[in-house]
Nucleic acid binder design. Sequence first.
DNA 1: ACTATATTGAAAATGGTTTCCATTATCAAT
DNA 2: ATTGATAATGGAAACCATTTTCAATATAGT
Lengths: 152, 152
Amino acid sequence: MSGYPLRQQRLYDFGLKLTNPRKVIINLLKNTDKHLSAEEIYLDAIKTNPSIGLTTVYRTLDLFFQIGMVQKYDFGDDRARYELTDNPFKNQHHHHLVCVKCRTIVDYTDFVNEELELMNKTEKILSEKYQYKIFHHTIHFYGVCTHCRPVQ
Amino acid sequence: MSGYPLRQQRLYDFGLKLTNPRKVIINLLKNTDKHLSAEEIYLDAIKTNPSIGLTTVYRTLDLFFQIGMVQKYDFGDDRARYELTDNPFKNQHHHHLVCVKCRTIVDYTDFVNEELELMNKTEKILSEKYQYKIFHHTIHFYGVCTHCRPVQ
DNA sequence: ACTATATTGAAAATGGTTTCCATTATCAAT
DNA sequence: ATTGATAATGGAAACCATTTTCAATATAGT
């Protein structure tokens, strides 16, 4: 029993200090179901603490990514997007469906168990065959949503 | 019967002109099994025609991507990488296994039929459920290769 | 509170990609 | 083959997400 919330404990476990910018960014990620970019996170963060700099946001996100606390994605719009690894707002395991026009991202969970099973099997074989230590995979579907395709 | 090679025909079909930089870039992509970046393509292209500019390489690759002739990927190393959609050097359908240290990319085809079947099924359901017109998907595995992990 | 040390913020640098624009090449019509 | 309308090109400069630099500040164990 440390008395610390889970995510703050995680910082301690890695010998990291619990600073205000880190708290602010954790809280903000905890309360969104979106895939925010560094700039979006920065603009949200300064509402809570106007002195937070964009540099710190980048550094903090990278740090969280390094310790596995956030996932970092590229959905093809020239900026990284982040989501908390264990987000109470989301289903634990999901993959992504991206509208290449409006950049809306749907977290889908359909067939996710089946997918996961196949991914695990594939991961095992690939690890052995190519001698890779695999730690992560992504599945992205790209398309155009109804809203961006009004006719038909 | 047009008399043109397939890929050149494709340019005509889209009302595009067959210029030297485009020919050079097509040929070079046809003869590699790698996932080249724009700069790598540029450095290769100027061996054939030194007057080709980097700008044109970017424009040409984007054009080819728009008409579906090349695939454009982000493997997390801060630059886009390209491969010909139908490359005689490669298995038609494959997915990617990326070493996050040395950035080697393995095209794997293991379980690709099983994967494809599941992807098609998933794609169908997602299309209907979320009303997306899906045209593309990616599966990336990320890990570290033996070479980058010498001990054990 | 004090101190060693990690962290921060602002400004400048970086680097892949895009834009601008004057020049040049392509190709359909002659 | 030549012409002319138009698309494509190349170089320089701009763009913009991200990183680096460095002096100032905050954190956490004592």
